[in-house]
Design a protein around this nucleic acid. Structure first.
Lengths: 119, 119
DNA sequence: CCTAAATTTCAACTGTTATGGAAATATGAC
DNA sequence: GTCATATTTCCATAACAGTTGAAATTTAGG
């Protein structure tokens, strides 16, 4: 993940309604939610919601799939997981910490998707 | 950490020069860097750099201390670590995953500060 | 086909963000 | 005190983000 992608992902999440929508989708898991349901839950006009969901999708934070007339959005956990890794890269100049306490966070699991939803 | 703090932190990092400055400080560790050195490294005017560092400080991502004529900035790892926790809260509706593979990332170490710098 | 429903695209407006030069502030050296 | 250095604050300008209503698009049902 390069800096451009990181900036787009962070920028997408740094907005009240987009952050709320993303959290909603994280909690919804692999089942996801249709655009209309998200808009209703957040009290936003459909056009505004569409605008924000497009921003999240553009950043790779959510994926969309059509199911009949609905467009279902789901969180893409992998992209979010890549953020912290980028931010903490070469933490403290890469100098290994001398104590048993860690300096940098450990890598996160690459697969955060609920198996039950994938099945 | 509440949503307002999260949005400010994410917003602070979602900008080319601020992201670069923050990463520089993460790599500098507890020693930090003076404002002028950061500006020079990033090729920014002093006033622009000051603007961005103020944004990072406002979000709690960096701290500042004066050392003679220099103002030294350092990364505040704790705030950044709190972001992912917020974003992954109640992942997948809080339903525990049925397989051995994890659904949500594990909590990160609260102390990411290099002991060698603190000493 | 024609109509309804779900979503996106477009257009216009408003508010905020990023920028660098100039001036102000704070510290240290002589 | 005076001067040089480091940083911030102020100002004006240019670009971008967020909002909604109306129109266009896509799919489903009768």
């Amino acid at each position: 993940m390069d800096s451009t992608m990181v900036i787009r992902a962070l920028g997408a999440l740094s907005q009240e309604h987009r952050l709320a929508a993303f959290r909603l989708l994280v909690q919804a898991g692999g089942a996801g939610m249709p655009a209309g349901a998200i808009a209703e839950k957040l009290g936003l006009a459909a056009s505004s919601m569409s605008f924000h969901l497009a921003a999240l999708a553009n950043a790779g934070l959510v994926t969309q799939r059509r199911q009949s007339r609905l467009i279902i959005y789901s969180a893409n956990y992998d992209v979010m997981n890549a953020l912290m890794g980028y931010l903490t890269e070469n933490c403290c100049g890469g100098v290994p910490c001398t104590t048993e306490e860690m300096c940098c966070p450990p890598p996160m699991p690459t697969a955060m998707t609920c198996k039950k939803d994938v099945a």
